[in-house]
Write a protein that binds this DNA or RNA. Sequence first.
DNA 1: CGCAGTCTTGAAAGCTGTCAATGCAAGTGG
DNA 2: CCACTTGCATTGACAGCTTTCAAGACTGCG
Lengths: 191, 191
Amino acid sequence: MNRQEFMTESTPANLHFHVVSGGARLFKSLPDGRRQIIGFAHKGDVLPAYPCTHYHYSAEAMHTLRVMCVPTPYLRHLHETSPGACAASLNTARQLLVGLHNRLLMLGRQTARERLAAFLIAQGTRMGRGELWPVDPGISRADIADFLGLTTETVSRLLSAFHREKLISRQRRSIHILDLDRLRAIVAHSE
Amino acid sequence: MNRQEFMTESTPANLHFHVVSGGARLFKSLPDGRRQIIGFAHKGDVLPAYPCTHYHYSAEAMHTLRVMCVPTPYLRHLHETSPGACAASLNTARQLLVGLHNRLLMLGRQTARERLAAFLIAQGTRMGRGELWPVDPGISRADIADFLGLTTETVSRLLSAFHREKLISRQRRSIHILDLDRLRAIVAHSE
DNA sequence: CGCAGTCTTGAAAGCTGTCAATGCAAGTGG
DNA sequence: CCACTTGCATTGACAGCTTTCAAGACTGCG
């Protein structure tokens, strides 16, 4: 079920999806094929919702993926009757807003080098205190590029540069952070 | 009160703001001064909210501005007790999400020409059926640039190009759309 | 082993940014 | 009323970052 698109832009939004296991890419595309990845969804995530009758982005499975479908009317009913459920949804929506604001700054004002460093940090430190995780090998260069608004070539070149500078190590497709502090410095004041 | 910053990034978020009249710029900045405008807030808007204890962006008055301040705890209480109020907030949050998704695509994948055309269309057709409005003269070239992730020089050059191509007219600082269809074509498939 | 897809690397082109000068309009003070 | 200042906007020349185009290299797999 790799690469299977289960949710398409400008299609009637009858269902909400909860990710039960696996991962999904959320993206928007331009008519000529240029693609921007909005975000990734992992186990436990609810795909960010849409106020209107149509989806506003597409989603496809990354490798394996199991989702739970919730009819939109049911969710709406739940929100209108249970303040707790609605408040919870509002909270996740707000967290998404904060993340998107940061990405706006990143895409609009940071260099390729800064963006990639920020991405590696985000991937490497996700849901861990000081733990350093490798970047999910299911995420291809093309995914990174489409997430950061770059080309795969630029991503590849920068990864090679980071490797030369001993900031990261690469084995197979997975990337490990070697020097978190220096990566942080790159993001902060464009080393 | 022009340019007065009434809300600052990483400051304790004790108050929510409703815009009563006038306009505000919402933005984030990098330590070296690079700035990205998140959006503009006009009469009736509520400044997009923050799930944590700190604001995640700054806001400043554009010309004149009157805001109504609502204590955060009060709003939280309201949301927890009134499903209607919470659902309304959730709905505006979702509309913001859709807008931000589109801007992600714009900043990550569209050219300067396409971004400016999209901006002019958005400004020129806001809250009107077929009505064409001039771009708010209170929005400077620097604002447009910081909104689109460009420089003022690029914005200026492109506006001149659009003017030469008879897509827009300029008088003082306000811009009028002359050929909406052709602008739309620029956005859609990169003319 | 060979194929297909992905990743890496190089050279060149292009778009946008940087630096710098000029123009333009409004406001200030003599 | 007229220099003079100040803040934007416009324009040009040039540099630089990223993309584009193209060729190999690597990996997984039948």
